[in-house]
C-alpha cells in the first residue's frame, strides 16, 4: 500500500515535470489566440528556443544567459509571425507552419555547424542547467506519513522553471481578466472593429500579445534543453507545442482549465513512462508503443468530440482590415 502511494506520488511529480512546457506553451497560445492570432508555431518557437538556450548555456556556462537566449530567439520568431499575420494580413496557419518547418531544419543545421555533434548541443553540466531546488526539511519530512511524501516527492525537488510555469498561470489569469490590457486583449480577439473605433491600435495589441507568447514559449524551450534535459536533441519538442494547443482548446481558452488539461496530458505521459514494462493484473504486459501513443490518441479523441461546444474568440484567424 505504502509502495503504491509512493509510486503514485512519483507519477504526480513526473506529471509536473512533463506538463511544465505544455503549461507555458498553453499560456503563450492563450495570449496569442485571445488576441485573434492563431499560433501553431508554439512548436517551432519552443524547438528553436530550446536550441538557442542550450547553445547559449554551453557557450557561456550560464543557464540564465541560456534562458535569455531562448526567450530572445522565440520572440524574434513571434515578430516574424506578427509581421506576416498582423502587418501583412497573411494566413496565420501558413505562417505558423512555416516557422515550424524553419525551426525544425534550422536547429539541426546550426547545431551541426556550431558543435558538429549530429545536430545536438554538447552535454550540459549541472552548473550550466537549471537544477532541482530541494526545499528545506524535505529529507526529514520523508518520515511523516502522506503529507511528508507529498512535500518531499511532489512539492520539493523541482527546478525554477517549473515554478515559473505554475506562476505563469496565475499571472495570465490576472492579466487577462483583471487588467485593462486584458480587457483590450479579449476585445481585440472578439471584435477588433470595436477596439479600433475606441481609438486603440488593433495591430499594437496583437503585437504585444504575440510578443508575450514568444517570451513564454522561450521559457518552455529553455526548460526542455537546460532544465528537464541536459542539452538539445533534434526534434526535442516532439509535438508538445501541438499538445499544448490542444490543451488550450480543451480548456476553452481559459487559464485554469487549460492548466488542468496540460496536467492531464502530462499525467498520461508520466503514466505511460511508469507503465512501461510493468505487469498489470488481468491485462498483462502492455506494449511500450501503445502506451507512448496514449497521450496523442487522447488528444485526438478529446478534440474530436468530448470538449463540448468550444467557443473560440470570434475574430480568431481573421486579419483585421478596415472595411471600405
Amino acid at each position: 500500500m505504502a509502495d503504491l502511494w509512493l509510486q503514485f506520488a512519483l507519477t504526480i511529480d513526473a506529471t509536473l515535470r512533463v506538463a511544465t512546457p505544455l503549461i507555458l506553451c498553453a499560456m503563450a497560445g492563450l495570449f496569442s489566440e485571445r488576441s485573434g492570432i492563431i499560433d501553431i508555431s508554439l512548436e517551432g518557437k519552443m524547438l528553436m528556443s530550446a536550441f538557442a538556450a542550450a547553445s547559449m548555456a554551453a557557450l557561456t556556462g550560464s543557464p540564465l544567459l541560456g534562458l535569455a537566449g531562448g526567450i530572445l530567439v522565440s520572440v524574434m520568431l513571434s515578430l516574424i509571425h506578427g509581421f506576416a499575420c498582423i502587418t501583412h494580413k497573411g494566413n496565420q496557419v501558413i505562417s505558423g507552419l512555416a516557422i515550424n518547418i524553419l525551426a525544425s531544419g534550422l536547429t539541426v543545421t546550426l547545431g551541426i555547424a556550431l558543435f558538429a555533434q549530429g545536430g545536438q548541443t554538447p552535454f550540459l553540466n549541472k552548473s550550466e542547467r537549471f537544477t532541482d531546488i530541494v526545499l528545506p526539511f524535505a529529507e526529514q519530512a520523508e518520515h511523516v506519513p502522506v503529507l511528508g511524501t507529498i512535500y518531499k516527492e511532489i512539492i520539493s525537488g523541482h527546478n525554477l522553471l517549473v515554478w515559473v510555469a505554475l506562476f505563469s498561470v496565475i499571472v495570465t489569469g490576472y492579466v487577462v481578466f483583471r487588467t485593462t490590457f486584458g480587457l483590450r486583449l479579449r476585445a481585440v480577439g472578439e471584435k477588433p472593429e470595436a477596439v479600433d473605433s475606441a481609438g486603440v491600435s488593433v495591430s499594437g495589441l496583437r503585437f504585444q500579445a504575440v510578443i508575450i507568447a514568444g517570451v513564454l514559449c522561450g521559457i518552455a524551450g529553455t526548460y526542455l534543453s537546460t532544465a528537464h534535459g541536459a542539452g538539445f536533441i533534434r526534434e526535442m519538442a516532439a509535438g508538445k507545442g501541438y499538445i499544448a494547443l490542444a490543451a488550450l482548446i480543451f480548456g476553452k481558452w481559459r487559464p485554469v482549465p487549460a492548466l488542468l488539461a496540460c496536467l492531464m496530458f502530462g499525467f498520461m505521459d508520466a503514466l505511460a513512462a511508469r507503465l512501461q514494462g510493468v505487469e498489470i493484473p488481468v491485462i498483462g504486459h502492455i506494449s511500450t508503443d501503445l502506451i507512448l501513443v496514449l497521450p496523442y490518441l487522447l488528444t485526438v479523441i478529446l478534440l474530436a468530440g468530448f470538449i463540448g461546444k468550444a467557443s473560440p474568440p470570434r475574430a480568431i484567424g481573421v486579419p483585421y482590415i478596415k472595411e471600405r
Binding site: 487588467t179 485593462t180 490590457f181 475606441a198 486603440v200
Partner: peptide, 13 residues
C-alpha cells in the same frame, strides 16, 4: 466593459 473599452482609466479593471 464595452463602454469603458479603450478608456478604462488606469490598469486595474
Amino acid at each position: 466593459e464595452n463602454i469603458i473599452l479603450g478608456h478604462e482609466g488606469g490598469s486595474d479593471l
